[in-house]
Computed example of a mutant assay.
Amino acid sequence: MATGLTIRRARREDLPELVQLYRHLVPDDVPVGTGQAEEIWERFSHYGDSGIFLGLIDGRQVATCTLVVVPNFVRGGASYALIENVVTHADFRGRGHGKAVLLAAVEAAWSLGCYKVMLLTGSKDPATLGFYRNAGFQTTKTGFEMRRLPPRQG
């Protein structure tokens, strides 16, 4: 269980530490600079009910995921949600923090009336796949993607 974990939505002042937390997701990725992070935050802030969820221990960011809520013309107009950028700081893995943050984002989607929450992972690692299954996600659809950037390795 995620003992001592506080979960909340990220705020603009969280950006410097959040950008560093993402390094634990894609360590060899080119990090965004402060100015670029501010621009991305500004664009993301216009996505209505969407948000970046943070798990904190003693004020330190240890886990995060992004929830994007998409308006919808079917399913009676019920929105759906996408989850992306799920990561836990390497020093805090295996303690339930990632799952707690992930489930907080799912609960937010339900409270907003979303009829489903989707996520994709490129990982083939049984531990990663087990993490998502253990959180309640199921493999019920076939996913396709078209990429401009190559998938990350690992």
Score class of each variant (00 low, 15 high):
residue 56 L to P: 07
residue 54 L to C: 03
residue 98 G to A: 03
residue 42 E to S: 12
residue 39 E to N: 05
residue 61 Q to I: 08
residue 140 T to H: 02
residue 121 T to C: 01
residue 15 L to C: 07
residue 120 L to I: 14
residue 2 A to T: 14
residue 69 V to W: 02
residue 114 C to W: 01
residue 46 H to D: 09
residue 137 F to S: 13
residue 31 P to V: 10
residue 34 T to F: 04
residue 37 A to N: 05
residue 149 L to T: 07
residue 112 L to R: 09
residue 83 I to C: 00
residue 27 P to M: 05
residue 94 G to P: 06
residue 39 E to Q: 10
residue 83 I to N: 01
residue 74 V to N: 13
residue 65 C to Q: 03
residue 29 D to I: 13
residue 154 G to N: 01
residue 80 Y to T: 08
residue 116 K to F: 02
residue 97 H to F: 09
residue 149 L to W: 06
residue 41 W to C: 05
residue 109 A to W: 01
residue 112 L to K: 08
residue 127 A to L: 14
residue 16 P to W: 04
residue 68 V to T: 14
residue 89 H to E: 11
residue 97 H to Q: 06
residue 103 L to C: 10
residue 115 Y to W: 12
residue 93 R to E: 09
residue 10 A to P: 07
residue 42 E to Q: 13
residue 58 D to M: 09
residue 22 Y to F: 11
residue 138 Q to A: 11
residue 92 F to Y: 11
residue 61 Q to M: 07
residue 59 G to W: 00
residue 57 I to W: 00
residue 126 P to W: 06
residue 43 R to N: 15
residue 10 A to L: 07
residue 143 G to R: 03
residue 53 F to W: 10
residue 104 A to V: 03
residue 60 R to I: 13
residue 44 F to E: 08
residue 148 R to F: 12
residue 39 E to L: 11
residue 60 R to Q: 13
residue 89 H to R: 15
residue 73 F to H: 13
residue 77 G to P: 04
residue 129 L to H: 02
residue 36 Q to V: 14
residue 102 L to F: 04
residue 99 K to I: 11
residue 107 E to Q: 12
residue 113 G to E: 05
residue 154 G to A: 00
residue 32 V to N: 04
residue 63 A to I: 11
residue 24 H to E: 02
residue 51 G to F: 00
residue 6 T to K: 12
residue 142 T to I: 09
residue 79 S to W: 01
residue 7 I to Q: 04
residue 85 N to A: 13
residue 25 L to N: 12
residue 133 R to K: 15
residue 65 C to Y: 01
residue 129 L to R: 05
residue 137 F to C: 06
residue 89 H to Y: 10
residue 23 R to L: 07
residue 37 A to M: 09
residue 128 T to H: 01
residue 29 D to T: 15
residue 120 L to R: 05
residue 11 R to D: 14
residue 23 R to K: 10
residue 48 G to T: 11
residue 93 R to D: 09
residue 54 L to N: 05
residue 146 M to N: 10
residue 31 P to C: 10
residue 144 F to D: 06
residue 128 T to A: 10
residue 130 G to W: 00
residue 141 K to V: 14
residue 69 V to L: 07
residue 71 P to R: 11
residue 91 D to N: 14
residue 49 D to E: 12
residue 46 H to K: 04
residue 19 V to I: 12
residue 134 N to K: 14
residue 149 L to F: 12
residue 8 R to M: 06
residue 24 H to Q: 04
residue 145 E to N: 15
residue 59 G to H: 04
residue 69 V to I: 14
residue 149 L to Y: 15
residue 44 F to A: 13
residue 88 T to V: 13
residue 148 R to W: 13
residue 10 A to M: 08
residue 140 T to S: 07
residue 89 H to V: 12
residue 108 A to Q: 13
residue 18 L to C: 09
residue 115 Y to C: 07
residue 12 R to E: 11
residue 131 F to I: 11
residue 150 P to E: 12
